[in-house]
Amino acid sequence: MEIMLIAFAAMAFAVGYAVGSFQMMLFIYAGGIILTALVTLPSWPFFNRHPLVWLDPSEAERNPKPQVVPSKKHGAKQRQKIVVFMFSLVDCHSFGSNGRL
């Protein structure tokens, strides 16, 4: 989209300057915006050639998210807990995906 717009702007400026018409430049650029909109706005099928495959919901149920335990203590103990919790996250993840990811 950015490339198309910049290309149209460059073209519009070149043609407008060559013809000596400011109006021509603006019309070409306006046409360029409309054309770019036609290309980029609608959900054309070719934008969906490589769709993301989402995990099956049953897969997610087998590996439940670890629950965050609210802690009232402060200081080193809490920090330890967070580190342990992060490790557990890593564990769950590698275990759940069976190394397939």
Partner: peptide, 23 residues
């Protein structure tokens, strides 16, 4: 579509400003 239209219109102002500045 609305997001893409917003991006398109916002960005189109920049090349326009560059063209006018160049002129």
């Amino acid at each position: 579509v609305a997001y893409r239209l917003n991006t398109l219109v916002s960005f189109s102002v920049l090349p326009l400003a560059l063209m006018l500045a160049a002129a």
